[in-house]
Design a protein around this nucleic acid. Sequence first.
DNA 1: AGCGCACTACGTACGGTGTACGTAACTACG
DNA 2: CGTAGTTACGTACACCGTACGTAGTGCGCT
Lengths: 236, 236
Amino acid sequence: MVGRPAVPEVIWARPERAGRGPKPAFSRADIAAAAVRLADAEGLDAVSMRKVAAELGCGTMSLYNYVPRKEDLYELMFDAVSSEYDLPEKPSGDWRADILALAHQARAMMHRHTWVPRLMSPVYGFSPNTLAYIEYTLSCLDGFDAPFGEKMELIAMVNGVITTYVANEIATAERGRSLPWSEEQEQEIRTRYLISQIATGRYPRMAAGFAEDPGPIDLEGVFDRALGRVLDSFDG
Amino acid sequence: MVGRPAVPEVIWARPERAGRGPKPAFSRADIAAAAVRLADAEGLDAVSMRKVAAELGCGTMSLYNYVPRKEDLYELMFDAVSSEYDLPEKPSGDWRADILALAHQARAMMHRHTWVPRLMSPVYGFSPNTLAYIEYTLSCLDGFDAPFGEKMELIAMVNGVITTYVANEIATAERGRSLPWSEEQEQEIRTRYLISQIATGRYPRMAAGFAEDPGPIDLEGVFDRALGRVLDSFDG
DNA sequence: AGCGCACTACGTACGGTGTACGTAACTACG
DNA sequence: CGTAGTTACGTACACCGTACGTAGTGCGCT
């Protein structure tokens, strides 16, 4: 039995402290905080095992004692920002308002940590703070008379819409961040190309629509409207 | 003027054939097809400039004559699979049915090319086939009496829900693909951990819900229900 | 008390990535 | 016909995740 075959494990199932050996120099919270700091400052792609280790002040491979795979580092990060929700002790009783308030918290959190939507995945659904989040959301829905499955579908759909819409907001806002040229240039190039395509006459409906020019888009309004529609579709 | 400062450009704005010089050995369609073949067979992470070049039978750096950045390769791929839609000459007149049919085509396409949801982003919205797709969708909505902005919001929301839900389906189905252990093991580990957490009593509502055990989930049913809700929220 | 072992720490190394740069061959235009 | 711009592609650099080996440390058991 020279080498274990890389035992599959959820990182949350591992005890944070082992019984034997020297006591760990860092906690999971330390590691997650360092990674989150990096991602906030330089983007998710800047989060590498080397850089996180350097941020912590330890050797690269030492990090692997705490985080067996990089994917687990992502899971730590996701859980860390999920702790930023302010979950009231008890829901207000108006489940629609409670869900909306939660959605706005989520949106604000993602704007603070713009890399979060890229990590959104059903895979990260079992972390401690995520479980607390789901449980609280379910408590908001105590007054919503529906079977458990429908409540979960509501939660999934709301979270999906939040992620999708905020991801769009962030993608358009931060598109130029990683590019060596300015956002204005990029924007101009893209719209000029779009205009040239529309001018071909192949897309008459888009041409007519964009001719109206409704001015700048109110992103938060779009977000609220989409969310309202989703809740309406369950409310009726 | 020794080196241009990496002029920003949308790849679709570039002419595929330059006037001078030897004629290119490959078309964009060739390149996209090679990349799609690779992604289908080995996953999106296997799509590297080197491997695509090898698939085409040319040197790695030759590929950069056609595709200035890797991001552009993704854009080619996305456009390539967007050509797989079967867009009828004229919509049926029942816009709800037409949108649903389109959504099922999208879902099937993403199950054929499971890497597509990972590429979904507002950034890839100007490719030729994407423009055709949007224009056709707008034509379906000719009978839907609403301002242009609301039609675009409908399209955005439908596409968002499709992507989110199919991404979930794929993520759970393919989770074990890249792991060195089996999907059954992974699944067992995860559910065992979840059960242990629920058993702590900290999540009474989840405990109650999962105690019901409604049997296997009908993924297509969930998809259809979600989509139906979205359309309902616009229909009323 | 003391032995053994699980754990921490970390340097080295391997195979992979995107892509900047330099050079050689080729062709369509002025 | 020359020449400028394009294609082709080998080399090289910085960076990535992580397997592996070695050394040191201190808890738990006998």
